[in-house]
Design a protein around this nucleic acid. Structure first.
Length: 546
RNA sequence: GGCCUUAUCGUCUAGCGGUUAGGACGGCGCCCUCUCACGGCGCAAACUCGGGUUCGAGUCCCGAUAAGGUCACCA
């Protein structure tokens, strides 16, 4: 068999450059000792999964804290899954969560092109070289033929796949190959595997530790019939020429590690380090499964933007899953930016974590409680501008008023901050009662209407906007006493049955009347913010509703 | 089914031969308190099961079980 002739017939010289060309064009990177080059290599499907952010964050931290490079490569070798505008979505959504690439698709960079489809020439050059060396060959097998051998293999409990005796096209004669080519039969290029599945090696994974991998014996496809490489082949070529030092990717890739090892080996490339992380899971009835794009809204990065989770909160939660010692650090350094945490890939969990929105909420609340009025205003406004209703957008027209509301509701300036706000959507909904066009009370009191009415009327008659908090509260107590409610909590606790209720019950009635809610921050301040006119109007409205 | 991986409170986990098995979220209770919160204190809550090794095992070894991943011209 004349391999050179075959290689030339399959991939003519004018289509590719000599191998040295690529090695010179993409030289080793000039980076400080210990710097890592990492990458994110998504398919342009237009859907950004929370798992994408999870891996992105790991890659970003490793690259940037080591003084290295993070780049974006688009794996668009599968034409069927390609979606217009997907790359823009990738950039936009990751940027929102603080992931910035140093180079890559739609950015500058010396190691491009960063779209795999634009790199066809490089793949072809190396495929040709493999053919020349007798390490790759054309395969003309049809889907039906493949199906047949697979059936045979499963029936006989043999290892499925295209290998050894089952690799029919491996044994094609020169004559047969050229006949097939002449007949215009479609073909793929396969690797002529030299491996033996019986041989096992231990492999050092940066996340999992030592794992055993067997050698690959599959004659995997490296170039599909349309000349586009498979993931495996593109991975080896790209991560070599883009000079990736560390590949962090999902653990679903572990089974194909043998293929990658053989490919790097046969191509004469140095194998990068690998870290295979676990995926974020969800409990679905009895079983755990990956967060699903179709079933779980929280799987999508869009979800967090729509809900208005602060990007820092989401990042923080991701970090707690990513590094087990992160939370401890955060507890000690609540003020420090996340970038100061020393991220280590070895501290990544070895088994998949269940997504816990309660934990996210807690982290989110704590973070929101660190914002000042202006930051909170800006954040909530930007959310409302994009996702809010028209009424909600209008809230932000009067900045001064809104800042007063936020100062109260977030406990800004007080000794203890409130932690009521989880995300922008919930926060904006929570303050609806401050705005007359969204004030829609349902008035659910825990006392008889007659009792409530007496209280409300009594309070309304004595209310004075000019009262300070102390004077105001004295009036609340007076109204309470007038209806027989306890104003002395000690006396009340000593004998609760002696009273219809206590002063806090009275406060609740007033609160429900003016806000429609039983849970709000300090009522006096609310009335101050609303103003005398609206406060009285609301009390009146509540009285007539009884 | 083969191969790979994993296994500590409900959840995320610490633990790397000798611990009252620690923390966080969530739950519950108490205190603080004009409501709601915040905060403080406390309670309940775990080593999957067998065998070994060892003076001693959550920790090491071997099994079993369970869970997850994977077996494409998808990535």
């Amino acid at each position: 068999m004349d391999w050179n002739k075959l290689a030339e017939a399959l991939i003519p010289d004018e289509d590719v450059k000599p191998l040295d060309y690529y090695e010179t064009k993409y030289p080793a990177r000039n980076l400080p000792e210990g710097a890592h080059v990492t990458r994110l290599a998504p398919s342009p499907t237009g859907f950004m999964h929370i798992g994408n952010l999870y891996v992105a964050l790991a890659n970003e931290r490793i690259a940037h804290q080591s003084g290295g490079v993070l780049y974006l490569r688009i794996e668009d070798t599968d034409d069927k899954r390609k979606v217009e505008g997907a790359v823009e979505i990738i950039h936009k959504s990751l940027k929102y969560f603080g992931i910035n690439f140093d180079e890559g698709a739609d950015l500058c960079g010396e190691y491009g092109p960063y779209y795999q489809r634009q790199r066809a020439e490089i793949y072809h050059a190396y495929a040709k070289d493999l053919i020349k060396r007798g390490l790759a060959y054309p395969c003309f097998c049809t889907e039906e033929e493949m199906e047949k051998t697979r059936e045979y293999q499963t029936e006989n409990k043999l290892l499925p796949g295209y290998y050894g005796e089952f690799a029919k096209c491996r044994k094609l004669t020169e004559k047969e190959i050229y006949e097939n080519l002449k007949a215009g039969k479609p073909y793929v290029i396969r690797l002529r595997s030299q491996g033996d599945v019986e041989v096992k090696h231990t492999f050092r994974d940066q996340v999992k530790g030592d794992i055993t991998v067997t050698e690959n014996n599959q004659d995997v496809v490296i170039l599909k019939s349309d000349g586009i490489p498979t993931y495996h082949f593109a991975h080896a070529i790209d991560d070599h020429f883009m000079r990736t030092t560390l590949v962090i990717r999902g653990e679903e890739w572990i089974p194909s590690l043998p293929i990658h090892i053989e490919l790097f080996n046969v191509l004469g490339f140095k194998l990068p380090k690998y870290g295979h992380n676990c995926s974020i899971q969800k409990i679905d009835g009895e079983t755990r499964r990956k967060l699903s794009k179709r079933k779980d809204p929280e799987a999508s990065l869009t979800f967090y933007r729509e809900q208005g989770y602060h990007p820092t909160a989401v990042r923080t939660y991701m970090m707690t899953l990513l590094n087990s010692n992160f939370e401890e650090w955060l507890l000690k350094n609540p003020e420090k930016p996340l970038e100061e945490f020393k991220y280590s890939i070895g501290k990544m969990g070895k088994s998949g974590a269940l997504f816990d929105i309660l934990k996210l909420n807690d982290i989110s609340k704590t973070f929101m409680a660190t914002l000042d009025a202006k930051q909170a205003y800006d954040f909530l406004k930007s959310w409302a501008d994009e996702f809010g209703t028209d009424e909600q957008k209008a809230y932000f027209a009067d900045k001064e008023y809104m800042c007063k509301v936020l100062t109260l509701c977030m406990g800004i300036g007080g000794k203890k901050r409130r932690k009521d706000f989880v995300c922008a959507k919930q926060a904006v909904e929570m303050i609806a009662y401050f705005f007359d066009n969204t004030f829609a009370p349902t008035y659910e009191y825990r006392f008889d209407n007659a009792v409530v009415k007496a209280i409300l009327e009594g309070f309304k008659a004595t209310y004075d906007y000019a009262d300070d908090m102390q004077a105001w509260f004295e009036k609340v107590k007076a109204v309470a006493s007038a209806s027989g409610f306890a104003t002395d909590m000690k006396a009340y606790k000593a004998d609760p049955t002696a009273y219809p209720g206590n002063v806090s019950d009275v406060a609740e009635m007033l609160r429900i009347a003016t806000t429609g809610l039983a849970n709000t921050p300090d009522l006096w301040t609310i009335m101050q913010i609303l103003g005398a006119e609206r406060t009285l109007a609301r009390l009146e409205k509540a009285i007539t509703a009884l």
